[in-house]
Design a binder for these strands. Sequence first.
RNA 1: GCGGGUGUGGUGAAAUUGGUAGACACGCCAGACUUAGGAUCUGGUGCUGCGAGGCAUGGGGGUUCGAGUCCCUCCACCCGCACCA
Length: 1069
Amino acid sequence: MEYKFREIEAKWQKHWKETNAYNVNNNSSKPKYYVLDMFPYPSGAGLHVGHPLGYIASDIYARYKRLKGFNVLHPMGFDSFGLPAEQYALETGQHPAETTKKNIATFKKQLDKIGFCFDWSREVQTSDPSYYKWTQKIFLELFNSYFCDTCKKAKPISELVKKYETQGGKHFTAEQWNNSSEAEKEEWLMKSRLAYSSYGEVNWCEALGTVLANDEVVNGVSERGGHPVVKKKMRQWYLRITAYADRLLEGLEKVDFSESMKEMQRNWIGKSEGAEIEFNINLTPNPSPSGEGQKTISGYRTTSVEQWKFLLEFAKQNRKNATEAENALWQEVRNRKIKNCKFRKQHPIAGFIPDFVCLEKRLIVEIDGEYHDTKEQKQYDEAREQWLKEHNYQLIRFTNEEVLNDMPNVLQQLGEALSFGEGLGEVLKVYTTRPDTIFGVDFMVLAPEHDLIQTITAEEQKIEVENYIAYVKSRSDRERQAEKNISGVFTGAYAVHPFSGKHIPIWISEYVLSGYGTGAIMAVPCGDERDFKFAKHFNIPITNILGKHFNGTEANASKDIVLENSDFLNGLQMKEAIEVAIKKIEDEGIGTRKINYKMRDAGFSRQRYWGEPFPIVWVNGIAKALTENDLPLELPHVDKYKPGPEGEGPLANIKDWINLPSPKGEEQRVRYKRESSTMPGYAGSSWYFLRYMDPHNNKELVSKEASDYWNSVDLYIGGTEHAVGHLLYSRMWTKVLYDLGYIGFDEPFKRLLNQGMIQGSSRFVYRVAGTNEFVSFGKISEYKVQPLHVDVNIVDGVELNIVEFKKCRNGEFANATFILEDDGKYICGSEVEKMSKSKYNTVNPDDLCEQYGADTFRMYEMFLGPVEQSKPWDTKGIEGVHRFLKKLWRLFYSDNNFTNGQQVDGKPIWTSDAPTPEELKVLHKTIKKIDDDTERFSYNTAVSAFMVCINELAELKCYKKEILEQVLILLTPYAPHIAEELWHVLGNETSVLDAAYPVYNEAFTKETSKEYPVSINGKLRTTITFSLDAEQKDVEPIVLSNEIVQKWLEGKQPKKIIFVKNKMINVVV
RNA sequence: GCGGGUGUGGUGAAAUUGGUAGACACGCCAGACUUAGGAUCUGGUGCUGCGAGGCAUGGGGGUUCGAGUCCCUCCACCCGCACCA
């Protein structure tokens, strides 16, 4: 009899459905096992061969675990909220609910054809109100909770309120709290809620009147239509995922995810440890003591070297011959007596010598005697004042009389003058992971958005700074990130080094990001590549703290260097210096140890229609949560999906939904308005694995009994594309629900397996430009051709089926002519691309199931290679798997034959005879191999082991029930339909789904002898068979007397004979 | 640039602990049965050489009696992150 897979598969699929063969219940004495697939978004395109790869892998494992005696939960559902359905609605006017329903039906039909063992009675759809009621409920929990920093977990916000009322908070007393308005309190609580509302930037496209997702914006314009997109601040909801950063990191230690997956998450969280250091800001620098130093940047020198020497003599003279008034004032200002400012006497500046100068504040004090009144003197003074003004010096004059008679007034004026620029006393905070390099700081860099820029920029740098900021603003984020050119501008201000007192110029550059750390860095050019390049580009002198490890031509970022030129850190290894530096910084009160994360809080608002509505009502601008009784807050039905005004979502257009009347008894002018945005796609998918446990519960999101029984997912299979999105969010939600006592575990997925992506293998034909003539791939170089995608399904390998080609695309190529290869074939070009309809490289699983059957399809997908590996799809080769199943079939049935001109079906040929030792050996070898391979998801080798088994049984002409029955059970997870059919052919009445898994018995596979490979000097020369218990002393004489060994020894004595029992023999000459 | 991964026949790939490299398939070659076959079966198939043999796991080096596997180094490709201080 023939293997009629279509009939067989239809028959058993129907049977399993009718008998609810895949339904699981929550009460079982068996151990539980939870196998989960990442549920799909039901797109309109339906399934292609890439989708089922992971589903088949999980299905095999689920069935395998069931056979091994587990109560297996293996559900499926749909992530059915999302943007594509809404865009489709915008284009066609079809309601997303309808298209979604249609798509889900298609998906289910396709999935069922492949014969998955999903328990459809537990199906969930995220867009179903009975489901999203609970998504909204979890949102309320997030809104009504805060993260307690001391116990590191979520707690009800009411506890925080109670604390504020009785003890106050960090920034206010209990009394202040209690006297605050409701709005003030709410605003403050928003800073703690796990789901909070705040102002954030969105991509606003004026022309489309809508907000766009990041990937809908390309190069600053909208992907659709190319309209300009700007950043716009809007009220947005956020999830405080940053509060969980540490626990999300720690949790990775106890889950079984691939290393790359964990790294991706760690990378995304981006934890770094270091210090936040405060630098005082100063407008002007200390001069170098002698006024020398050609290397110093503009403003650092007060005079030229030549003049300095010349003027110094005058200065000395003047100091000796100081007037009475000068001496009097000197006594008042020396030793930083006034405002802690350093004054110098007779310090040469440019070509003159002022009486006093405070260089830090650029303040010059002159005490005038009589001779200043002459005309020449006045002109000279004016010129000098002009020069000083241009160079940002402030000049203040006193007469001798004022100084001698009214000192308090003089000092007050001086004090006021020195206050100039105060408030710049504000500190510059930087974040660094390398506080050990603090003595290598040569400049500071602020992000162009930094708040301090306005305050600290020196007068003479204002224009340059403004130009630079304007330039930065003109560039998109993308440009700023893509471009590696060094740009920046000096602010004219200086920071004071907290240890050395050195004055460090403050620059602005776009290479510093405003969003990370403090938006400002201390630059250590000898140890950081970017700082180094910046220093070189702007000619900033570089301090070397690395000694010989810094060569002056590139930065050395190593952490294994002993520091030099670093004061109290000298001689320390950098790694220990980090600790020493942080300690000192903390002790001196100039900074703190600080941990930073790259991860930002997750934006949770979408200005869209097709998502969960927020259970929030805004009452005069204060967000009020609905209660659980108000849920679900159903998505109102709309006919139009156009965005709302000012970037709001379409819901804002539905006036009678969005606006609520004030409750009775309240003032009617109070505005009640619903939240108009909806939740993002990941809301529903962040907890669906919990709902499967208890999908019909209308009292709770999941009962404690159900979640305690099923616990976390034992095996989760899906693609890597969710590495940081879905997986982080669902891990966070799980932790919150755990903290709040809803569930008893805080990691959702114990083990994660990532299936590889199946790429498309596209085929091309080459049309001679401007004609309807097609050139075969081998000859395209002779013509000017234009490649066209051709449907892979009409290409056999690379050979085009010309007849089918002429029929495709509505006969567009019906009259095509061809330039063929010399052997008369048309050969197509090929390329690996993403599988997509537009590239004509999709292969539909339905077609393959129709042509070869679901069992063949399942096994072939697994046979392609390791599940985790990405590979292009190639239908060639599926025949091999199909042949294998037919061969299996022939172990049960004889071939059809022709008798008297009539086809007679073959008869069952299996027997109840006792198996031979050879047959048992084949069986038990297979049991061991299949069991091992399935357990470690090595499905490709398992399929090959089945082939080996069937090949060997066919060779042995083994038709024995005792053997075949066991093989069928092993095969059930891989090819359930044929297994069930043949199981019944053998006379079984129950389903093979619940058969007892075969037990491996080593006794049947034990060998008595082993064919040892014999190598001479490591090269294999022959094999000799020895009994298994043979020892070295037994084998040596036999090996040495072996003819081939003798030949290779060439009469020499062997140095050594290596004998590894059960492995090999190596003779060393 | 950083992190993770991969490199093995004409192709997809095996080799779980350092121990007979290429299992199992596809494809190809030859043959059998057939009116025919894209059905089924048998045999062959890494490269090279008439042969004994030699050469082969991205390249180079090392450790070892023995290396696809371990170490060093270089190269190529894929994935993720990307001015994160």
